Computed example of a mutant assay.
Amino acid sequence: MMNNLEFNPSSTSDCISYAENSQVADESKIRVTVRAPKNKASAYSPSAKSESKGMSSKETVTLHDRLSNVCAELNWRCYEHSLQLYLEEGQEQSLNYAENVIDALEHAVMLKRVARANRLIKQSGLSEAQLETNYNPNLFSFSDNFDPQRLGELEHDENLFIRGEPGVGKTLTALQYAKRAIYEKGYSIYFAYSTELFALLRDPIRAPDLLNKVKNVRLLILDDVGHEDIYEGNTNAFYNIVAYRLNKQKSTIITSGTAVEQWASRFDDRKLFESTVTRFVSKAYLMHMTGRNLYL
C-alpha cells in the first residue's frame, strides 16, 4: 500500500536515486538544453544555486539552532523560549539531557514529515511504481546554464515545459520534481496523463471536483500533452486550468512528445488554445531533450 511507504525525509537520495557508479558514454547520453524565462535568466545556473534551507548537520549547529528548527517544524514557536530555559537549566546543573531532548524532537519532526508525505502521495495520482522509479543523472548531459543538482527544484511561481521524442526521459524527469515537491517541500501535487485527465473532465459528475483539484494543487504535472480526444469544450477546460494557475502563481509542468503546432488539432478552439500555450511558454523554463530511446 502506498500509504505505508517509508522514507528518510532528511535524505534527498531517498527521493532521487543516483547511480553514481554507472558510467555512460557521452555519445549515448540524452542531451538536455534549458532556456529560462526572461525574468529568471540565470535561476538554474550553477552560480545561482540556492543555499540549502534544510536542517544543518549536528556538527555545525548549536542546540539552540536545532531547537529553533524543530519548534518551527512542529509549530511550537510559543513553547520555544520555555524549552530553551529548560535546556539551559539542565546544562547549568550538569544534567546532560539536552541532546536527548533535541533528538526526540527531531524524531517527532521526521514522523510528521513521513505522515505528511504519505498523505500527499495518496492524493497525488502517482503510482507506487512511479514513486520507486530510479533516476540516473549519468544518462543525461545538461547544457552549461543548468545545474543538475537543482533538478527537481521549482519555486512556487515557476513553470516547466519539457519537450522531446518518446523515450528520452521526459516523464522520468518530471517525476523528480514531483518527488522533491512531496518529500522535501511538503507541497500538494497532482500528476495526470493529459489524455486521461481531459477524458475525465467530460464526466459531468467528476469534472467539478477534479477541475478544482488540478487548479489548486501547488504543483500540477500534465504528462504527454498532444494526444487528447477532440471534443467540444476541451480548449476551455485547458484554458481554465492553465490560466488560473498562472494567475495564482502555482507551478505547472507540461511534457510533450509532439510539436506545439500539432497540439492545436486536438483542441476545438485554436485561437484560445494558441494564446493559452503562448502565455504558458513565455513564463516557463523550456527543457528540450534529444537522444536515444532509453527504453529500447
Rank of each mutant, 00 (worst) to 15 (best):
S50Y: 08
K53W: 02
E27S: 09
A243N: 12
S256T: 12
N3I: 08
S47E: 13
A104C: 14
S141E: 14
T60I: 08
A115Q: 10
V24D: 09
F191Q: 08
D144R: 09
Y79H: 07
R35W: 07
K40D: 11
R279C: 07
T255A: 03
R266K: 15
V242E: 05
A259L: 15
N3R: 09
F161K: 06
A243E: 12
E80R: 04
A243F: 11
S282R: 02
L87T: 03
N3G: 05
A284K: 02
I205S: 15
F273E: 04
C78E: 05
V32S: 01
A192G: 10
L220W: 03
S52W: 01
K170G: 03
R202Q: 15
E106R: 06
L201D: 06
V34S: 00
F267Y: 13
I30A: 09
E228S: 01
F280R: 04
S124V: 08
A36D: 02
A25Q: 15
M110W: 08
R150S: 13
R163G: 08
L67P: 04
A41Y: 01
V214C: 07
N134D: 03
V61E: 08
V109Q: 02
F198G: 02
I253T: 03
E228W: 05
E158I: 01
R119T: 04
V109R: 01
R292Q: 07
L211Y: 01
P9F: 00
V225W: 05
S17M: 12
N21E: 13
H81A: 08
N145C: 12
K271C: 13
E274N: 05
